[in-house]
Amino acid sequence: MNAPTKPSSGAPADDWRIDRARAVALFGTHAQDWPIEIVEETGSTNADLMATVKALPRKAGALVRPIVRVAYLQTAGRGRRGRTWYAEPGNALLFSVACVLPRPLEGLAGLSLAVGVALVDGLRSLPLGPAAGQIALKWPNDVLFEGDKLAGILIETAWSTDDASAVVIGIGTNVKGADALAAKVGALNAGVPAQVRGAAPTALSRALPTANLTDTLAAELNALEPALQRFATDGFAPFRQRWNGCHAYAGREVVLIEQGKEIARGVAAGVDESGQLLLDTASGRETIATGDVSLRLASDGAA
């Protein structure tokens, strides 16, 4: 396949690539030790790492440390529920992290939410000023900025035993090109009801004009490293308060959509200790597990 060409945004020639030397200088002590591979183009970094970890011995300690694969362009990138992830090289940070956690499959509950907390903390460490407070979380796996989608998380399990699970965590963060991306996604969603479309895309450069892939990668990996260690030991419980504190829809009326149809409506009341959504409905509080459902604000036009 042809290598991706420099975006036509007028940015400096080296601005759209990751500066390895700068990234290493910005990495914390532990993230520095993570093997990181950067490729021009691939189908999906998640699929690449899934193949790698599926070949590992199925036991705790099969992977000494997390491994990272970054691609400037993914030709088969996807989000939750198989949605396509649209990105132009240099405008989005697209990478996956593979790790073996010393937890059985049921012990992975809330992992995507814990990763979301780490991403918020990492992104807020950048020099965003007051705008940092506008970075928030949408259940179960989106990071929002001013209500629009800034980043998404896709977690896949390669294998699981009674005492260990191999997972691949895919992360896509829109760094630049918000207007072009919004126009493209808007055209593709023409005629689609608002409650099905979900949040419009945005980019980090709206808050930080100098946003770039290098600094964003370092910020996110530095936050992910301690988060994965803590999740490995304690699960989602220690992340719950922080997640609820970053909840974009806290106290607001929301609807749950499944296959384009509303299945529940109520006031979002945060998440429980396993990462399930707490929804205050007319008939009382309900807990909603992650699955083939989508969360939308009721004010977005859901019927």
Score class of each variant (00 low, 15 high):
residue 232 A to T: 06
residue 218 A to G: 06
residue 222 N to V: 07
residue 216 T to F: 02
residue 229 Q to C: 08
residue 217 L to K: 00
residue 214 T to G: 02
residue 227 A to W: 07
residue 208 L to C: 07
residue 203 A to Q: 04
residue 212 N to I: 13
residue 201 P to I: 05
residue 230 R to F: 08
residue 203 A to M: 02
residue 195 Q to M: 15
residue 216 T to A: 04
residue 197 R to S: 15
residue 207 A to Q: 02
residue 209 P to K: 12
residue 227 A to T: 09
residue 196 V to R: 10
residue 231 F to Q: 10
residue 210 T to L: 06
residue 201 P to C: 09
residue 214 T to E: 01
residue 203 A to Y: 01
residue 230 R to P: 01
residue 208 L to Q: 03
residue 202 T to S: 05
residue 196 V to G: 07
residue 229 Q to Y: 07
residue 204 L to D: 05
residue 204 L to M: 10
residue 200 A to P: 03
residue 219 A to Q: 00
residue 208 L to E: 03
residue 211 A to F: 01
residue 192 V to N: 05
residue 212 N to A: 15
residue 219 A to F: 00
residue 221 L to Q: 05
residue 209 P to S: 13
residue 216 T to Q: 00
residue 206 R to L: 12
residue 202 T to W: 01
residue 223 A to E: 04
residue 217 L to T: 00
residue 226 P to I: 06
residue 199 A to K: 13
residue 200 A to N: 11
residue 210 T to V: 11
residue 209 P to F: 13
residue 214 T to M: 01
residue 226 P to D: 10
residue 203 A to K: 02
residue 194 A to G: 03
residue 232 A to Y: 11
residue 220 E to N: 14
residue 232 A to H: 11
residue 204 L to Q: 02
residue 198 G to W: 13
residue 221 L to I: 10
residue 216 T to G: 00
residue 212 N to M: 13
residue 203 A to G: 05
residue 192 V to M: 15
residue 213 L to F: 02
residue 207 A to V: 05
residue 228 L to Y: 11
residue 208 L to P: 01
residue 197 R to I: 14
residue 203 A to L: 04
residue 224 L to D: 09
residue 194 A to M: 13
residue 209 P to N: 13
residue 222 N to C: 04
residue 195 Q to I: 14
residue 206 R to D: 09
residue 198 G to L: 14
residue 197 R to W: 10
residue 227 A to E: 10
residue 205 S to K: 02
residue 202 T to N: 03
residue 214 T to A: 02
residue 191 G to E: 09
residue 221 L to K: 09
residue 217 L to H: 00
residue 203 A to E: 01
residue 195 Q to L: 14
residue 215 D to N: 09
